[in-house]
């Protein structure tokens, strides 16, 4: 049964009022803390002041936001493609799996912030080191989720495919890969938020543009309103990219989303916290 559009939007409203109320409550508490003088204004700016700054310095912030978003998306896409290829190789070859796993784990465990300076040394102050850090951050969840997804296919389904005689390529295209998509999307959603972090970390280490640079500058100048504004914009970028993927998942996997229940709004609540 297809829901009537009107019902659907009423459903969205019903589900989103709670997170909206919580967000409003947080803003009120933040405001109260600053007006009562509980915390010095130079340590925590009021929401009003931060908002004013967001509006006043919008063109400045917009340029840097674009830089960070570009690095994030590029890193995410590279990590997505490489991650899926890696996962496929690992699922189809025991040798590759056992060979690559330790290195994969090593690459994941090593603190990215510690190796980021190295990329700056190697590649300079351009966007490349930021993209590489973003790739490193986002790669692991994509691989793990895709491997899990590809392995989640029923043995019976694969046996059935063997009796149908389609060969490994058809079996992959028609059965294995589509079956892995829900897992893959879960991994991609984690990956995209990590890619944002990766890009910002890359910018911290050495750059003259991007939101990481904005925050570092603001920090150096004790400009807390700008610092807060930068943080808010970074969060918004992450949340928007996340929701974009969620939307893509709903459009591509309606069979899955319909059973998962309310998607975007539930996740909006998650992303906002």
């Amino acid at each position: 049964m297809k829901p009537v559009p009107g019902d659907r939007w009423r459903g969205v409203a019903e589900r989103s009022w709670r997170p909206a109320a919580l967000l409003a409550a947080c803003l009120v508490i933040w405001h109260l803390i600053t007006v009562t003088g509980l915390v010095e204004a130079y340590l925590v700016p009021s929401p009003g002041k931060t908002f004013d700054l967001l509006v006043d310095k919008w063109s400045y912030l917009w340029g840097h936001t674009w830089v960070t978003t570009y690095e994030t998306i590029l890193g995410f896409v590279i990590a997505g493609v490489l991650g899926v290829l890696m996962a496929v190789a690992m699922v189809y070859s025991r040798t590759i799996e056992s060979t690559a796993y330790p290195i994969l784990l090593f690459a994941q465990v090593i603190p990215k912030i510690a190796v980021a300076p190295l990329f700056v040394v190697w590649l300079g102050f351009g966007f490349e080191p930021k993209v590489i850090v973003a790739v490193l951050m986002a790669f692991f969840p994509v691989v793990i989720s895709t491997v899990t997804g590809l392995k989640s296919v029923d043995t019976e389904m694969l046996e059935l495919a063997a009796t149908m005689g389609g060969g490994p390529v058809k079996t992959f295209v028609k059965i294995r890969f589509p079956a892995a998509l829900p897992h893959l999307f879960a991994g991609l959603k984690v990956a995209v938020t990590l890619a944002v972090t990766g890009a910002v970390v890359g910018e911290f280490v050495g750059s003259n543009e991007g939101l990481g640079y904005v925050i570092l500058q603001a920090n150096g100048n004790m400009d807390t309103p700008m610092l807060f504004a930068g943080l808010i914009v970074i969060s918004v970028v992450g949340i928007l990219l996340f929701l974009l993927l969620d939307l893509a998942e709903q459009l591509m996997l309606p069979w899955h989303s319909s059973r998962r229940g309310a998607a975007v709004t539930t996740l909006l609540a998650k992303g906002g916290t």
């Binding site: 019976e156 389904m157 046996e159 149908m164 059965i175 069979w255 899955h256």
Partner: peptide
């Protein structure tokens, strides 16, 4: 073999 039909206890359908 490809010249048979097989039915399992679980229907094993592709849910999409």
């Amino acid at each position: 073999r490809h010249d048979i039909g097989f039915v399992f206890q679980r229907a094993a359908l592709l849910e999409w």
